[in-house]
Design a protein around this nucleic acid. Structure first.
Lengths: 338, 338
DNA sequence: CTGAAAGCGCTTACAG
DNA sequence: CTGAAAGCGCTTACAG
């Protein structure tokens, strides 16, 4: 391997001191245009690339971001982490991944190691309770950004999916198809994402002077069984409906199964929208479900942008909500070809 | 933030020189047991954590591994990358991700940046043609390990799924259920993974003195349409069969659809095994398909182990094949509960 | 076994 | 605008 070319090589070849060479190559220092040009030409000619390790050492910036994931392996975490890592990589920033399992002592160990590694910032993916307090107690020195979670007083910098908008676009889609008797069958209202999506649904309906079938969102669990049961409850209560916004794709599948059982056609009689767009990741599989895609890779990219801004010391938008996108399938548009 | 405690603080407190302190804390240098103990105690008492940046600078090791992915966002790449990043993170190694798009100049730029960042090793995920030659031309100084791809003369260090074993376990499962007339419906034989899996199927059958229905694997494409067509071809040719090893889950779904159309029950008349186990990632969705799970997260972890060994200068197993696992569903075992 | 010193390759006040 | 020098916090020959 050819001898590494160093800044002092460039300086010597350009006939300046290393200090001047450093200033000429960097953006900051004031150098005459002529020397700057000469040094830059020389650097290029010698194929000089500053040693990132030396630079990190002297600047105290590791060019590394920590990723602390509640559960790194998972359909919701992976796209966010990959999206973030990809964007950070474009900027020469590496990611140091720690997979946190709930134990509090674990978290302390993770934070200490991240601190020793001198990460420039920390991305927290998912729900890691107490982390803000722990970081404070440990005098964790880097900015922290949270993702895949709702903001709270202790989580002030958050990048996440726009759950409210997800409820809105699902509902608007059904309204746009002329459906007016729309039910919202979703999971427990205690879940923040569920509550926000439900608000989006209710508000969209209210703008047309409508309310959800049954008067309010129907809360249960993220399961096919609940989707099935909820349809039966509505039918038994004598409610009639021509559209369902389901809390996720699982619920939507249960809803569709129950509709088939009671002899209602999808989408002719009842159009159904899901959430998560798992279809995108997977087999067409006849699951030809219209669904809100939360665009998790873009959530990760947006988180990376926030991290980059935080590292640069820029003022941050405290809460960034990434809008979802509607993926249309045959559960709402019968002749939709994919 | 409290003043950072440094090695010389520890040395002073322990009453030794920094050199001795360094040796006492490190694994290598020879130090008397008593001083070693004293220095270690002192370090612990002061909550000393060596500055990773300084260490990297002086050792020339960045504690960073490059990840060059053909396509980072994807159902096959993400688990591998996450698995690798997770394992590397446990060892304090960060990952610098580059998403390569095919262009050759791009690859050169990526490699140069990775080199400037002084990565200790490089993980190549997927198919990035020419990379070995490019790395050689650029005198890329770090070891390279390939994953999610078959070995070739220019790809010598490979960690990947054991495709042959995947064919074997799928076939053994059907044989174990008493099926003997087994077809293998798969994608193009030019694909190395297809060919290897087919070998596994054919060999397993041969051990019982059997051959695939139709005399050989039936090659086509990774699609539902092909699965459907292949079943029709076999049926029209007058073949009868009680088992199908499908090349992937998509093909399996097509196969099952075609079987339903010709009035054959799954699994009573024909048991079907897929490959990829996409079900695991997703909706139960009635896709209750028995499938070979390629355990991609474990492939990533094994790749990380290989990278760690390479960084440590250890002798490497050139080719590591990670065995898959059979995920059993109702397409082979009717009363299988999940 | 231990100490004193050099050195890794940069950046950044500090003078001039 | 430019040069000479200090310094970042470690590790590692080199003497003793």
């Amino acid at each position: 391997m050819a001898k590494k070319v160093t800044l002092s090589d460039v300086a010597a070849a350009a006939g300046v001191s290393v200090g001047t060479a450093s200033r000429a190559l960097g953006a900051t220092g004031r150098v005459s245009e002529s020397t700057r040009a000469r040094v830059r030409d020389t650097a290029e000619r010698l194929d000089f690339h500053p040693d990132a390790l030396a630079r990190s050492f002297v600047t105290g910036r590791s060019a590394t971001v920590g990723v602390l994931a509640e559960q790194a392996v998972g359909l919701f975490s992976m796209p966010v982490i990959i999206g973030a890592a990809e964007r950070l990589g474009e900027h020469g920033i590496a990611t140091l991944m720690h997979n946190a399992h709930a134990a509090r002592t674990d978290l302390v160990a993770h934070l200490k190691r991240l601190k020793a590694r001198r990460v420039d910032a920390l991305l927290v993916v998912g729900d890691t309770p107490d982390i803000t307090d722990l970081a404070e107690a440990l005098e964790f020195p880097a900015p922290m950004i949270f993702t895949n979670i709702e903001p709270t007083p202790s989580r002030r910098l958050v990048v996440t999916s726009d759950e409210h908008q997800a409820g809105v676009i699902a509902t608007e889609h059904l309204l746009g198809l002329g459906r007016t008797r729309i039910a919202h069958i979703t999971a427990a209202s205690a879940l923040p994402a569920v509550a926000r999506r439900a608000e989006g649904v209710v508000e969209s309906l209210a703008q047309r002077g409508l309310r959800p079938v049954g008067g309010a969102p129907v809360h249960g669990a993220y399961s096919q069984a609940w989707g099935r049961e909820a349809v039966r409850l509505l039918v038994d209560a004598g409610e009639s409906f021509d559209g369902v916004v389901a809390g996720n794709d699982e619920i939507a599948l249960g809803v569709m199964a129950a509709l088939a059982e009671v002899g209602l056609r999808v989408p002719e009689d009842v159009a159904v929208v899901g959430h998560d767009n798992q279809r995108r990741h997977v087999l067409g599989a006849g699951l030809d479900l219209t669904s809100v895609d939360p665009r998790l890779v873009d959530v990760g990219r947006a988180a990376a942008d926030a991290l980059l801004a935080a590292i640069a010391g820029e003022q941050l938008e405290p809460i960034v909500r990434v809008p979802g996108a509607l993926a249309i399938g045959r559960s709402t548009v019968p002749d939709h070809s994919r």
